[in-house]
Design a protein around this nucleic acid. Structure first.
Lengths: 333, 333
DNA sequence: CTCGTGCCTGCATACGTATGTAGACTAGTG
DNA sequence: CACTAGTCTACATACGTATGCAGGCACGAG
């Protein structure tokens, strides 16, 4: 691979002049610039990011941390983040964070990235504090810890839970179940809190046997739904912690001959792409992921530009999307 | 951020000794090693990848090039590649390649990655040749160009097409349609060729109005299916270039009240995760993606280790997965 | 003719790590 | 006691680029 020294030799100038000429520094004469450009093209010169990043202390790379890649929601998140980063000329390095042990901060602090987007932070995670302590710019997306001193961009999860509850109550449901998310995630906790608050205000019970907390996976939704549908008196409506769980529940219902929404109303959260398909048509609460991703990238950019700026928390409204998996409760068979 | 020089100062040794001590070089005395380790921990020292990669000419990063991230198949591909790379301690940098213009080789040749996995190469792409010319190790996954001199790992697409045709003929279908993939992709071309070959051998017609070539997208499948189902005499079976297209077709059928498999048999290709869901149950040809990804990563590793080794092409068998979207043709209504 | 000014360009160096080589010190042996 | 072997550490340098600073050159003005 040719270096800037090779170009310099061919063009008959010094290496620093090559660097300046190729970055359109006005201090280098037009003629010289031409000559350098020609030499660079002739040699097929491509500036080395390795050298450049060492010198500028910038890599042009941003890390995206998620807990797992097989989850459609995270995949969609990553796609949105990618687009937002691409627009800023930044590259994306993907890192997954196995639940235990948490990702070691070292993987982010080795100078390989200019900043990080944390998309699956647990409530008790020490990662944000560590990164803040060590001065690595980062932003929390989707989930986060409760400290207000860190940048974050999330949807209004509590309000989403409220909207779901209001929908179910409005349809006349009183025998309601919930498959909530993990208690150690802000999304799981807040969606459940909003949902419970509205039910409690309407004096509708949500006993433990109809309220579960499970991981955000298809399999969890499937299994829990099977369990709940097998009860003596199955619920007439089911609020799921997210769409992936809801899809699992929907598939369980389909597999066990339970008609949706005739016998069971299912409501999800996120509005992943699949939810809008004809074979699914899931009623759900939408997170505006593209907007959240670009807000998060913007926040991160601002943080990198000014590490001392005050933290900001962006809350994006959650919107109810009414499709075909909700309806009034059926008469008891 | 502390550097190895800071550690050296604190431990009372030279910087090179720090480097050697932390990499467990047997030449540094046990006591010194302990002292250096202690100092490194005390300072919270993390070796800089920037400096290291400049010195070792290795980045520990592999680029993955796909045409778009929103496609579930590529997402699943990326997840599989990630796992395979993770097992080797390599990081993954994702790059998308807009169809036109093709990705500039410069993004790969700037020394930011040790190698590349190309997952969506077009038949007429010059990228593989460019990379080979410039000496960047790479491997083609899923698709590729026809030259045999480049490493590649693919499924047996032609055989998959044959298996699909045999299934349809065996069920008794004679009025068959195909939504094929783009002609400028090896996957699209080979699947179509295998499919056509078997049909031709059985003297079953596949006229142009029942054979389309479209991009590998949900929308394409949806639209084409709508079009074909609106014909005077709609086909009784539909072979789709991949699962995403088949899912589009399946949804179109559902939306237009066409019963699958009662009135229409649909067969896909890839066996993405969604295809196995209860609400889908797509009959399809499986690509063993995890295996392909790990084979590709292994090939790339071998290529990096020995740039002069002969090229190898790994062909993974394609397996028919019979689910619930195929059946015998219905009697003409 | 000389001096000053402004425009280019080269010199020196920094960035952080890895590694070849030389040197210092200890211990062991004749 | 002297010499050698062996073990450990420091010195020097490379990797490729960016940038502060100084110097050179030409031109214009006095």
């Amino acid at each position: 691979m040719p270096t800037s020294h090779d170009v310099a030799r061919l063009a008959g100038v010094s290496q620093p002049t090559v660097s300046r000429a190729l970055s359109d520094d006005p201090r280098v004469a037009r003629a010289t610039r031409q000559r350098v450009r020609r030499a660079a093209i002739e040699l097929g010169y491509v500036p080395s990011r390795r050298g450049r990043s060492l010198s500028t202390r910038r890599t042009g790379q941003i890390a995206v941390v998620v807990s797992e890649l097989s989850n459609p929601f995270y995949m969609q998140t990553i796609a949105c983040i990618y687009d937002a980063l691409e627009a800023l000329g930044q590259r994306m390095v993907v890192l997954t964070e196995p639940p235990v042990p948490s990702i070691s901060a070292e993987r982010l602090l080795d100078g390989s990235v200019d900043g990080a987007i944390l998309a699956t932070t647990l409530l008790d995670s020490s990662l944000p504090a560590e990164l803040a302590l060590r001065g690595l710019p980062f932003v929390q997306l989707n989930r986060g810890v409760d400290e207000r001193e860190f940048d974050a961009c999330m949807t209004d999860n509590r309000d989403g839970g409220r909207l779901a509850a209001e929908l179910l109550l409005g349809l006349g449901h009183r025998h309601i179940a919930m498959i909530a998310g993990p208690a150690d995630t802000s999304t799981g906790r807040d969606r459940e809190a909003g949902f419970r608050a509205v039910l409690a205000a309407a004096a509708v019970q949500l006993p433990d046997e109809r309220a579960a907390r499970v991981p955000f996976t298809f399999a969890s939704g499937y299994e829990l739904a099977v369990e709940m549908l097998a009860a003596d008196r199955p619920p007439t409506a089911l609020f799921c912690a997210n769409d992936v769980v809801a899809l699992g529940a929907l598939n369980a219902a389909r597999a066990h001959g339970v008609d949706v929404p005739g016998q069971l109303t299912v409501v999800g959260f996120d509005d992943v792409e699949i939810s809008s398909w004809e074979v699914v048509q899931l009623t759900t609460l939408r997170q505006d992921l593209p907007r959240m991703a670009s807000e998060a990238v913007a926040l991160l950019g601002a943080r990198i530009a000014d590490p001392g700026r005050p933290a900001s928390r962006v809350i994006v409204p959650t919107v109810l999307i009414e499709r075909a998996t909700h309806g009034p409760p059926c008469a008891v068979p």
